[in-house]
Simulated assay, not measured.
Amino acid sequence: MTLAFEEVRLTLPHIELAAHLYGPADGEPVIALHGWLDNANSFARLAPRLEGVRIVALDFAGHGHSAHRPVGAGYALWDYVHDVLQVAEQFGWQRFSLLGHSMGAIVSVMLAGALPERVTRLALIDGLIPYTGEADTAPQKLAEALTAQMALAGKRKPVYAAFERAVEARMRGVGAVSREAAELLAQRGLMPVAGGYTWRTDNRLTLPSPLRLTQAHAMAFVRRLACPVQLVLAEQGMLAAQPSLAALLADTPIDVRRVPGGHHLHLDDEAGAQRVADCFKPFLLAP
């Protein structure tokens, strides 16, 4: 596995983000967006296989080596959308493609739906729209979020006595991953503390959302997509398990490729990364 990349820090007007740069400077511009609680190493296996593409693999705010948002700020999906747009501005990219996994795929769809003139192509891995909620659930969801926010000061991150213990915990986490994938995510996601290691991620990332888009809101972004879209659907992933998947994809021009593997199929092993690359390389480089 080749891990050749350039580590950079991007000073945006409102926050500093970390990223890995892959590929030639004159390659097809792509911003790669990882999933919730992951980091830029999510693309460590896939990015080197996408020759000819210039990939900026971000650590989202609050993840990996990127800064945390200021006190009082939150981590709404539309805030990530703004971050990504600012990254594109920093690179001088008026048009660019997005490569997104899970939450990163959701952020990609929202940006491409909001500003279709900016996005050339969407390459999505096992993600499409966020968890939704209808109007009658809004008061209860806000109550849950407020209660969790008030309790946050007393919440402590787990501390693992050894790196290996953290890897094992990540293997069992949301979107279970292989040991090698967990090691890659942990290498970038852990920091040393008294007693061992803990995660760099902002504790606020685990707070429940105070407001969810309705199904109609979420699908409005999908229906406004104007660029080619390819979705790699993991056959044993999280998206395939949703009973509403067929309805979500009905009447959309999304090119769906069903690929063996779990939710992190692009990272779990070399074979999975190659299968995803075989889908995305010709797609991202298409004239």
Score class of each variant (00 low, 15 high):
residue 3 L to H: 13
residue 5 F to W: 13
residue 6 E to H: 05
residue 9 R to G: 04
residue 11 T to C: 07
residue 13 P to S: 15
residue 13 P to N: 10
residue 17 L to Y: 14
residue 18 A to W: 13
residue 20 H to I: 00
residue 23 G to H: 00
residue 24 P to R: 11
residue 26 D to Y: 11
residue 29 P to Y: 06
residue 31 I to N: 03
residue 33 L to K: 09
residue 34 H to F: 04
residue 34 H to T: 01
residue 35 G to C: 09
residue 35 G to E: 03
residue 36 W to F: 15
residue 39 N to P: 15
residue 39 N to H: 14
residue 41 N to T: 01
residue 44 A to I: 14
residue 50 L to P: 00
residue 53 V to A: 04
residue 53 V to Q: 02
residue 55 I to T: 00
residue 56 V to A: 12
residue 57 A to I: 10
residue 57 A to G: 11
residue 66 S to H: 01
residue 69 R to I: 13
residue 71 V to R: 13
residue 72 G to W: 05
residue 74 G to Y: 10
residue 78 W to T: 14
residue 78 W to S: 11
residue 79 D to W: 03
residue 79 D to Y: 03
residue 80 Y to C: 02
residue 82 H to V: 08
residue 82 H to S: 10
residue 82 H to Q: 06
residue 83 D to W: 06
residue 84 V to M: 03
residue 85 L to K: 03
residue 92 G to W: 15
residue 94 Q to R: 14
residue 97 S to N: 06
residue 97 S to V: 04
residue 98 L to M: 04
residue 99 L to W: 15
residue 101 H to C: 04
residue 104 G to S: 15
residue 107 V to H: 02
residue 108 S to R: 03
residue 108 S to N: 08
residue 113 G to K: 14
residue 113 G to E: 07
residue 113 G to S: 10
residue 114 A to F: 08
residue 117 E to V: 11
residue 120 T to W: 01
residue 122 L to E: 14
residue 122 L to P: 06
residue 123 A to Y: 09
residue 125 I to S: 00
residue 128 L to Q: 06
residue 129 I to F: 01
residue 129 I to Q: 01
residue 130 P to K: 13
residue 130 P to M: 15
residue 131 Y to R: 14
residue 134 E to R: 13
residue 134 E to T: 09
residue 135 A to G: 04
residue 136 D to N: 13
residue 136 D to I: 12
residue 140 Q to L: 12
residue 142 L to W: 04
residue 142 L to V: 02
residue 142 L to F: 04
residue 145 A to E: 14
residue 146 L to H: 10
residue 147 T to H: 15
residue 149 Q to R: 14
residue 151 A to Y: 07
residue 151 A to M: 10
residue 151 A to Q: 15
residue 152 L to D: 13
residue 153 A to Y: 08
residue 161 A to R: 09
residue 162 A to L: 12
residue 163 F to W: 09
residue 166 A to I: 06
residue 168 E to V: 10
residue 168 E to T: 14
residue 168 E to L: 14
residue 170 R to G: 07
residue 170 R to T: 10
residue 176 A to N: 12
residue 176 A to W: 00
residue 176 A to R: 15
residue 177 V to A: 10
residue 181 A to Y: 03
residue 183 E to R: 12
residue 187 Q to A: 14
residue 189 G to A: 06
residue 190 L to W: 08
residue 193 V to W: 02
residue 198 T to Q: 12
residue 199 W to S: 02
residue 199 W to Q: 02
residue 200 R to L: 05
residue 206 T to R: 15
residue 206 T to G: 10
residue 209 S to W: 11
residue 211 L to H: 04
residue 214 T to K: 02
residue 217 H to Y: 06
residue 219 M to W: 09
residue 220 A to H: 02
residue 221 F to Q: 04
residue 227 C to F: 09
residue 229 V to K: 01
residue 234 A to Y: 00
residue 234 A to C: 02
residue 236 Q to T: 15
residue 236 Q to A: 13
residue 244 S to I: 13
residue 251 D to Q: 15
residue 255 D to R: 09
residue 256 V to A: 00
residue 260 P to R: 08
residue 260 P to S: 10
residue 261 G to W: 02
residue 261 G to Q: 05
residue 264 H to D: 03
residue 265 L to I: 02
residue 271 A to R: 15
residue 275 R to Y: 02
residue 279 C to D: 07
residue 279 C to P: 04
residue 280 F to A: 00
residue 281 K to H: 11
residue 282 P to R: 05
residue 284 L to N: 05
